[in-house]
Design a protein around this nucleic acid. Sequence first.
DNA 1: TTGACATTTGACCCATTAGTCATTAGTATA
DNA 2: TATACTAATGACTAATGGGTCAAATGTCAA
Lengths: 279, 279
Amino acid sequence: MAKKQLIMEKALELFAAQGFESTSVQQITEHCGISKGAFYLAFKSKDELVVALIDHFMMQFISDIDHSVKNVTNNQQLLYNFYYATFNSFYKHSDFAKVLMKEQSQTINNHELILKMRYYDQLLDKIILAMIKQLYDNTVEQIQYDLLYCIKGLIRIYSELFIFSNVQLDLDLLSKSLEDKTKILASNMTVPFITSELIQLSQLPINEEELSPQHIVKFIDQKIEELGDSVEKESLLLIKDHILEPRLPQAIVIGLLGNIQHHPHLKWVSYLLRNYLLN
Amino acid sequence: MAKKQLIMEKALELFAAQGFESTSVQQITEHCGISKGAFYLAFKSKDELVVALIDHFMMQFISDIDHSVKNVTNNQQLLYNFYYATFNSFYKHSDFAKVLMKEQSQTINNHELILKMRYYDQLLDKIILAMIKQLYDNTVEQIQYDLLYCIKGLIRIYSELFIFSNVQLDLDLLSKSLEDKTKILASNMTVPFITSELIQLSQLPINEEELSPQHIVKFIDQKIEELGDSVEKESLLLIKDHILEPRLPQAIVIGLLGNIQHHPHLKWVSYLLRNYLLN
DNA sequence: TTGACATTTGACCCATTAGTCATTAGTATA
DNA sequence: TATACTAATGACTAATGGGTCAAATGTCAA
């Protein structure tokens, strides 16, 4: 519908200049030259508009990049094309890029939106990882996640250059420059930091259900069965009691968590517990 | 004043969880257990609280990092120390780090705050550039700004790993890993992108006023009032006299600076003084 | 022209916000 | 105890927010 289009366009301009929260529906409707009621005919709420915007542009963005990467037979051009497509897309939709940078993932309180952003972020991760794999196959298995983060870091920081100042950049040189940096890192990096386990820990959804005490206790019971007698097992037992009937001082809880956090099989459980007990 | 301290602490917790705009003064006062009026006795407005928070933590952050870089004679450890200090500071003040990441510079409409953030950002740039210069002198003149951006990009993206998930990271390994990446980039990069002109275009000149003797003396007076009788206070008084009418030999000045640089409330003042007196 | 229907409006509602100020509670001195 | 002073309160205001809905306007076939 044309009305939706109009609202999305005009709202994006305002969001880019002021941010979500500081932009009122009133302002949007004035900027569109329509009434408040008309806005609520097109979108059920302000949040729905935001979701629509994110969806619309992220889909476009992701598919742009995916296209640039998938349709390259010559590996020599892969990285260059990837960077070029990325920054070109930022240019084409610079207002959206601005919003994206400003509302750095979670300014918004809307849980749905956070999940959505995380979803798109993981899609992008997949694309980049596939590209890394295609370029270096398994010679970089141990450094692939570090490479992923380096690439994302480069994009993030070089984006700021032209998103927050209105300087016109030489996209060709920029892409070549980042290609250069990436290749150098790929073939010389010797101290990787990010393991696949770390990735899993940081990406796993923090949905409410998973953080319910019932779920956590069940999970702890499972781990207790797996463990032999040890400090870890004893700590887990104490923590479990504390969850069912809180009575330990914070300092002791922290200490107990410290006892288990380095055990290779307890990383997930200690992640859950930290979230549940310390927030 | 203790009340200010309390409000700042409690407000930071809420800001970290919800963001500025979504946190009301009401919520803050409830979380502090004080009345609304008491809040407005401590701060003239919500904005003033935000400014105070930013100032307080950025000063601490910048001086932490500056300290870690300036007090290293062995170049081998420079990068490692820099990264370690950076991430360690994020850890120590993780709520503030969260706010900083969330309100990615300009969610806020307040013009003063944007300028302030830019100011601190540029201070950090200066520190990093000085470090690069010390490490590689002029062999990297053409790539120094790219190196600066790579370092900032790495910090930005690796920060997200632990700021937005509650994973406990191995700071030592992380620092080594980023040191590795940085050194590799420094000695292999061949296609620089960022020229000094580009830097100038993208950032406004730094605020020189803050480095004027008047400003520094005013700042010292403030600190002197806060301090009880102590070596630090006496040192500050002597330094103040020296600024107004220089007559102490360099060695004494350095000694006096040494007296104050470890006091937790004097980090910023000693950073300013080091810049003013020793450069 | 009429009437049935779809689209659009903006005054209105209620919740929430930042910020104020007359009043009260607390404390130290005479 | 009386007095003088500061620190703290919370009911209050004025403004703004998102969202609603009865009424007005527009459309078109008969």
